[in-house]
């Protein structure tokens, strides 16, 4: 079983793997890394038009009293993208690293951590854009620093799940498809494109069981409403992150070598 310390000793490899992924991603494209700015901006634009103009969703007031559905949406979207990105990338990373792992030895956690790093980088760019817009409209407060622990916890939460799904995907390629559907369901089950307040009370109980909702809510609190997350939020975030990361890591470390042999 690989310990975090062993994986850390391969940090140069992790950095290189992450770098390779990033470089390969934008090779042969004219705009290159600019796409990592355009993509979230386009998504933001689409959701704004659909939910803001056509469906006329009413967002709660922001910290400075303004109402902007686009920004309200984007706060949730940033943390969701981190969640979905980590899971999808974990599945892809393990699949891509498979042939390499059968030919040379290195801890199989390395490509997973590298994948996590590339997604985190993308998420930081997105949150950077968001923050820049917030500064422009004058909706900022010290609470923005809380983004750091929220991101860290979300990374741990998603990474643990990603490790297990990445492993399972090698055995059963169905996992990839199931995850695609599952993420879509979860996306709409989480109050991202709509506020939780529009959900009828009797269903809200169930919706609150979804831990991703806690992260989305916390993110909106600190960047949009300029408030702090509730204690309940913190408990959910810390607990789910810890359980997911430790569980995922243990399962992955235990089974990855066996799965690699059967590639």
């Amino acid at each position: 079983m690989s310990t975090p310390a062993q994986v850390w000793s391969y940090r140069t490899l992790i950095a290189n793997l992450a770098q390779r992924d990033l470089k390969a991603r934008y090779k042969k494209s004219v705009l290159g890394w600019v796409w990592s700015l355009i993509n979230p901006a386009a998504t933001l634009g689409i959701y704004t038009v659909v939910f803001g103009f056509f469906l006329r969703a009413e967002p709660p007031a922001a910290g400075n009293g303004d109402k902007s559905f686009a920004l309200y949406l984007f706060c949730g979207l940033v943390v969701w993208n981190l969640f979905a990105g980590v899971i999808n990338t974990s599945i892809a990373s393990f699949q891509t690293a498979g042939p390499l792992l059968t030919r040379t030895y290195f801890p199989p956690e390395c490509p997973m951590v590298a994948g996590l790093a590339t997604v985190l980088l993308q998420a930081l760019i997105e949150v950077g854009i968001l923050f820049a817009v917030m500064v422009l409209i004058g909706n900022v407060s010290w609470t923005a620093v809380i983004v750091v622990p929220i991101f860290a916890l979300m990374s741990c939460f998603a990474f643990g799940i990603g490790l297990v799904l990445g492993l399972a995907n090698i055995r059963f390629r169905d996992v990839n498809y199931l995850v695609g559907i599952g993420l879509q369901v979860l996306f709409y089950a989480t109050p991202i494109v709509y506020p939780l307040t529009i959900v009828p009370d009797e269903y809200r109980r169930f919706m609150e069981l979804n831990p991703v909702g806690s992260f989305v809510y916390a993110m909106r609190q600190v960047l949009y409403s300029l408030d702090v997350p509730t204690l309940g939020n913190w408990v959910v975030m810390v607990l789910t992150a810890a359980i997911s990361l430790v569980g995922g890591w243990v399962i992955f470390s235990r089974w990855a070598p066996t799965v690699i042999e059967e590639l």
Binding site: Y10, T12, L13, A15, N16, L17, R20, K23, A24, K27, K28, P99, L100, R103, T104, F106
Partner: peptide
């Protein structure tokens, strides 16, 4: 093993050598 076709020889050397520790 571990050479990425789209990356240059230089980039792949660094990649490969880090895999080897």
């Amino acid at each position: 093993a571990g050479f990425h076709p789209d990356l240059t020889g230089r980039e792949n050397v660094y990649m490969n050598a880090t895999i080897l520790g």
